[in-house]
Design a protein around this nucleic acid. Structure first.
Length: 424
RNA sequence: GGAGGGGUGGCCGAGUGGUUUAAGGCGGCGGUCUUGAAAACCGCUGUAGGGUUUUCCCCUACCGGGGGUUCGAAUCCCUCCUCCUCCGCCA
C-alpha cells in the first residue's frame, strides 16, 4: 500500500512511476474523492467536539440540580446533532471504502535501479554462475527420469487428487526431504530463525502481504470457517509481526521457513503441464527479513546471495536477472529472480524470487518500529526470497546430474542427507 | 461439542453510565543530590488522523474486532475473534 499523503502531494510522480509498470490510473477522480473525504471528516470532528462539550455541560448541570427545562432543551438539541453525525458518518464510511479500494489496487513504486521494460523479455541479466553441463547423450526431462527411476508418480497422483499433483516415492521422497533439511541447516547457520507457521491463514493476513483483495483467484480457499491456504510462507511469516511496534534493537529480524505452498495457477493453463515445475502444491524454503529502511537494499543483495549459496553448494549453474518494471510483482519495489539451468529444457528457469517490498507490506500489515531517542514510529521494510523452491531444485538435480544409464548422481553436499551417492 | 472465567497503554493492574482529561505501580527518559554510582525525591511518558503552523497549541478517534442503546459508553446490549480452566471427543 502506498502512503495516501504521498499520493495526495505527488500524484504526478506516482502516476508516472506506475505507468512504467503498465498501469494507467486516473488520479483526477481519486483526488476529488479524497478531498471530499477530508471535508467530511473535518465537519464530523467539529460536530463531535460540540457534542462532547455539551454532554459534559449536561452532566455538570445535572449534578448542580439546575433548571431542568434547560437540560431537556440541550438533550433534544444533542439528540438532533447525534442524528446528523450518524448520517454523515454513514457517508464517510462509503467514501472511505472507495478511497481504500483505490489504494489497495495500486502496486508498489519501482526502485530507480529497476530496468524499465514491458514484460519478462526485457528483464536484465546481472550475473551467471557455473557452466551448463555437457552430455554425450541426449539429456532427458525430469519427468522421464523420475518415472524411469520410479521416484515420481504422476498418474496415481492424478487419480487421488488431479492434474498438477505428484507423488514423490522412495528416493524421490527422500531427496525432497534431504533438500528441505539441507536448506534449513544452511540458512539457520547464517542466522535465520527457523519457523514453521500455520498453512491456513485469515483474510487480514492475505491483505497484509498484498495477495488480497486483488489476487483472490490465485488462492485456494476453505469455507466454514473461512481460511486461505498459503501460496508462500511469505504470508504467515511476514504477518508474524502484523500490528506490532518493534524496537530498533530488534532489527534486523531474519526468518527461514519451510512450508508447503498452494496455488491455483489460474491463467496458466497449458503452461508446464508436464512435470513438477508448476504444481498446485509444492514445498519451499523461504527467507523473510524485517529491516530498517536505510538498510533494505543492502539486505536485498545479501538475501539474494544467501539464496544463490544453495545453488553454489549444489553445484547447479544459474543466472540472476533483475526484473523489469513490467514484470515486477504487485507489492515489490525491486526483484531479482534466480534462474537455474535445466538441461531437459535447454534453458534457465526461475527457482527463486528475491524482493524488497520497502514499506508497502509494512504499511498494509501495520508493522512499525521505534528509533531510540526519537519520537514517533516508522514502518519497517520487508523482504523475502525463496531459498529455494524445493521441487524445482529437485528437477534441476535430476536433470543436471543425470547419467547415460538413467541414474542420477547425488550432489556431494546432499550425500550425508541421502545416505547414498547415486539414485538408480 | 458443553460449562465457566478473562482480553484495559511498552509491561502489571484498578475502573459497572457523567470533573476518567483511563487511578496506581513497574519500566523508560530528563532533572536535583553525589567524587562517581546506587538510593531517595521531583518532572515527563502511547498510536493514528485532522486543523493550526512551526514545533507551540487545539480537535477527533482508539480500553480484543464489528454493530447497537444513550445527550453522554472502557462501563449496558448484540455479535464475532481470541486466551485460560474443567468436562466430552480426538491425532
Amino acid at each position: 500500500m502506498l502512503d495516501i499523503k504521498f499520493i495526495r502531494a505527488n500524484p504526478d510522480k506516482v502516476k508516472e512511476a506506475l505507468e512504467k509498470r503498465g498501469y494507467k490510473i486516473d488520479f483526477e477522480e481519486f483526488l476529488s474523492i479524497e478531498e471530499k473525504r477530508l471535508e467530511l471528516l473535518r465537519d464530523i470532528e467539529q460536530k463531535r467536539a460540540l457534542r462532547n462539550s455539551v454532554s459534559q455541560e449536561i452532566a455538570f448541570l445535572k449534578k448542580s440540580k439546575d433548571d431542568s427545562s434547560n437540560i431537556d432543551k440541550l438533550i433534544s438539541e444533542m439528540r438532533n446533532l447525534g442524528d446528523q453525525i450518524a448520517s454523515l458518518e454513514q457517508k464517510l464510511r462509503e467514501i472511505e471504502e472507495r478511497v481504500q479500494n483505490f489504494i489497495f489496487f495500486l502496486p508498489n513504486i519501482p526502485h530507480p535501479t529497476v530496468p524499465v521494460g514491458k514484460d519478462e523479455n526485457e528483464n536484465v541479466e546481472i550475473r551467471r554462475w557455473g557452466e551448463p553441463p555437457k552430455f554425450d547423450f541426449e539429456p532427458m526431462n525430469h519427468w522421464d527420469i523420475g518415472e524411469i527411476l520410479g521416484i515420481i508418480d504422476f498418474e496415481r497422483a492424478g487419480k487421488i487428487a488431479g492434474s498438477r499433483f505428484a507423488i514423490m516415492k522412495g528416493l524421490g521422497a527422500r531427496l525432497e526431504r534431504a533438500l528441505i533439511n539441507f536448506m534449513l541447516d544452511l540458512h539457520t547457520k547464517k542466522g535465520y530463525i527457523e519457523v514453521f507457521p500455520p498453512l491456513l491463514v485469515n483474510k487480514n493476513s492475505m491483505i497484509g502481504t498484498g495477495q488480497l483483495p486483488k489476487f483472490e483467484e490465485d488462492l485456494f480457499k476453505v469455507a466454514d470457517p473461512e481460511f486461505y491456504l498459503i501460496p508462500t510462507a511469505e504470508v504467515p511469516v511476514t504477518n508474524i509481526h502484523r500490528d506490532e511496534i518493534l524496537s530498533e534493537d530488534d532489527l534486523p529480524i531474519y526468518y527461514v521457513s519451510y512450508t508447503p505452498c498452494f496455488r491455483k495457477e489460474a491463467g496458466s493453463y497449458g503452461k508446464d503441464v508436464r512435470g513438477i515445475i508448476r504444481q498446485h502444491q509444492f514445498n519451499k524454503v523461504e527467507l523473510v527479513k524485517f529491516v530498517k529502511p536505510e538498510d533494505s537494499y543492502e539486505e536485498l543483495e545479501s538475501l539474494t546471495q544467501d539464496a544463490e549459496e544453495v545453488l553454489k553448494l549444489l553445484k547447479l549453474p544459474y543466472r540472476v536477472v533483475s526484473l523489469c518494471t513490467g514484470d515486477l510483482g504487485f507489492a515489490s519495489a525491486k526483484t531479482y529472480d534466480i534462474e537455474v539451468w535445466l538441461p531437459g529444457q535447454g534453458r534457465y528457469r526461475e527457482i527463486s524470487s528475491c524482493s524488497n517490498f520497502e514499506d508497502f507490506q509494512a504499511r498494509r500489515a501495520n508493522i512499525r518500529f521505534r528509533r531510540k531517542n526519537k519520537k514517533g514510529t516508522e514502518f519497517v521494510h520487508t523482504l523475502n526470497g525463496s531459498g529455494l523452491a524445493i521441487g524445482r531444485t529437485l528437477v534441476a538435480i535430476l536433470e543436471n546430474y543425470q547419467q547415460k544409464d538413467g541414474s542420477v548422481l547425488v550432489p556431494e553436499v546432499l550425500i550425508p542427507y541421502m545416505g547414498l551417492d547415486i539414485i538408480r
